[in-house]
Nucleic acid binder design. Structure first.
Lengths: 225, 225
DNA sequence: CTGATACTGAAGACATTCTGAAGATTATAG
DNA sequence: CTATAATCTTCAGAATGTCTTCAGTATCAG
């Protein structure tokens, strides 16, 4: 799950990112209006944390823009302004939730979870695909018979596949999604081969078929075989 | 402790959830009969708040279903219908308590606490998990045989684990829960390692297995081995 | 056939977790 | 108030687990 943090107070931004990363989210951050708009255009985030009191332009403008592009789903507003009018204008503009500063990071994380649950899980904590059951709270994966022990990257990869089942995912997209924006240009993605290999092996060993189809020159697709 | 809120009035549902989260509960919500049944099947909640005036099916049907599956323990009915007959049919169907709308959130929370105490705490203030017995009044922990002498931090840590059994807790979450203030970026969590180590040793010495699973890169999970 | 793309196992690089011991800090007893 | 004990935190090294790199091999499309 990939999250964009729009917050100009760098220390806060960093500690939010650090916390959410531990909770297994992949975080990008933007410190001003322009950066935020660039990132939002280039990627479809699962959740956007939006500080509406930016210096170079009101964060509410970002929200309006998102609304116009039908991307306002999954926006959590954070703000020092605790006035009711702000809250109302935020929520009427389509934000999902509103969290006044100061807040506990665990509270923030809980709301992010809630938003993502609403968006992806149809309100459920269990994700299933064929014989596969993913308990996103226990971070455990199993088939009807067996437990599957996955590493962190494998788990994230599987989750990404399941969220995008049936869709072809390029190596670039996978890399961006699993490693965030700290991957430079001229990198080779050999490690993705390895992670795919390992995940495949574990899934097959557990009795699911090979759900990960390779599509030559394009990428991978998670689907029924 | 995990709570399911079954309530179709979204604003009310959200404010209940928000309040209870502040009290450290974990909340799921369901807006209609079907959602509620799905959730109930997929998770064993510690308490269920049930609005019996749902639009797509009477909430009492949910209660009957719970009763049939022996899960009616821990149900708190909330309802605008204040008639005695409703109250009676609710309670005879096995609900634990009945709260008429409108109510104060603090009143609701108090009753939730009471229900959970009754359900988990053995009527006294005892909380048990496997062979482990935690007396939350005396703040003492023991197995069926032995006393376990824990320090304050170890006790808090254990309690946090037991309340969130089966869930993966990141080091960040643990740190925030046990030390309050949020901790920024470049902090080391060495003291958590130490406390986990000490708690583990005491539990193992007392004869419980190692209930604290380490999950590399993600955190810890308290579970049956 | 050929060049590009994908797969594999092994190994080194890297990161996380565990541990005991020692230094702070706090609580307790006298 | 001081001495003592208990607890909490820090630290460095060891043990462990995971990620990435790499070189060789297999597969694919044209």
């Amino acid at each position: 799950m990939k999250i964009l943090i729009v917050e100009d107070e760098k220390a806060l931004c960093d500690s939010i990112a650090s916390y959410l990363r531990q909770e297994d989210f992949i975080c990008d951050s933007a410190g001003n209006y322009q950066q935020a708009m660039e990132k939002i255009e280039s990627y479809d985030y699962d959740c956007i944390l939006l500080d509406i009191t930016l210096q170079d332009g009101n964060g509410l403008d970002i929200l309006k823009e998102l609304k116009r592009n039908n991307k306002s789903d999954g926006v959590l507003i954070i703000s020092a302004r605790n006035s009711l009018s702000d809250k109302i204008s935020g929520l009427t503009l389509g934000a999902d939730d509103y969290l006044p500063k100061p807040f506990h990071l665990s509270e923030l994380a809980a709301r992010v979870f809630a938003i993502i649950r609403r968006k992806h899980f149809d309100g459920n904590n269990l994700l299933s695909f064929q014989d596969l059951i993913i308990d996103t709270q226990a971070k455990a994966v199993r088939t009807s018979n067996r437990e599957i022990d996955l590493t962190k990257k494998e788990y994230q990869l599987l989750l990404y596949f399941v969220y995008n089942k049936g869709r072809v995912l390029s190596k670039n997209a996978i890399a961006e999604h699993l490693w965030g924006d700290d991957i430079g240009g001229g990198v080779n993605y050999d490690f993705i081969y390895t992670h795919i290999k390992n995940l495949r092996r574990k899934l097959i060993d557990a009795g699911t078929g090979d759900c990960i189809q390779s599509i030559y020159g394009m990428g991978y697709k998670f689907a029924i075989t």
